[in-house]
Amino acid sequence: NQASVVANQLIPINTALTLVMMRSEVVTPVGIPAKDIPRLVSMQVNRAVPLGTTLMPDMVKGYA
């Protein structure tokens, strides 16, 4: 199973992502692939993302 990107903490709306905010985990449904973590750094979330939430492409500005 492919690992997805999961929030390692509460990420407030419009926050630029950093490595410490994200972890990889095998979850259902599948979200953004963990291999894309380096690409996500500095991108902003367009909503508040609670701890443990799988990041989906529509949550990150400029990803999709």
Rank of each mutant, 00 (worst) to 15 (best):
N1E: 15
N1M: 15
N1T: 15
Q2A: 11
S4M: 02
V6Y: 02
V6Q: 05
V6N: 00
N8M: 07
N8K: 10
Q9I: 09
Q9C: 09
Q9Y: 11
L10S: 11
L10N: 09
L10D: 08
I11F: 01
I11V: 08
I11E: 00
P12A: 09
P12E: 15
I13C: 12
N14S: 05
T15M: 08
T15G: 04
A16Q: 10
A16T: 09
L17E: 02
L17T: 00
L19F: 05
L19Q: 11
V20E: 13
M21K: 03
M21A: 09
M21Q: 09
M22D: 02
M22Y: 01
M22N: 00
R23N: 09
R23A: 14
R23F: 04
S24L: 06
S24H: 15
S24F: 08
S24G: 10
S24Q: 14
S24K: 05
S24M: 09
E25G: 05
V26Y: 07
V26W: 06
V27R: 07
V27Y: 02
V27F: 02
T28R: 03
P29I: 07
P29V: 10
P29S: 07
V30G: 11
V30E: 15
G31E: 00
P33Y: 11
P33H: 14
A34K: 04
K35G: 14
K35M: 15
K35P: 15
D36S: 05
D36E: 10
D36I: 04
D36Y: 04
D36A: 04
I37L: 14
R39Y: 13
R39I: 11
R39V: 10
R39T: 11
L40P: 00
V41Q: 08
V41P: 03
V41S: 03
V41Y: 04
S42Q: 10
S42A: 14
M43D: 04
M43F: 09
Q44A: 07
Q44L: 09
V45F: 00
N46D: 14
N46T: 14
R47L: 12
A48L: 11
V49T: 05
V49Y: 02
V49F: 02
V49M: 05
V49P: 02
P50G: 09
P50M: 07
G52C: 09
G52R: 05
T53Y: 12
T53G: 14
T54G: 03
T54A: 06
L55T: 00
L55V: 10
L55Q: 01
M56Q: 14
P57V: 07
P57R: 08
P57N: 11
P57C: 15
P57W: 06
D58G: 08
D58T: 06
D58K: 07
M59A: 08
M59L: 07
M59K: 02
V60P: 01
V60L: 09
V60R: 00
K61F: 08
G62L: 13
G62I: 04
Y63E: 07
Y63N: 04
Y63F: 11
Y63V: 04
Y63A: 03
A64Y: 04
A64T: 14
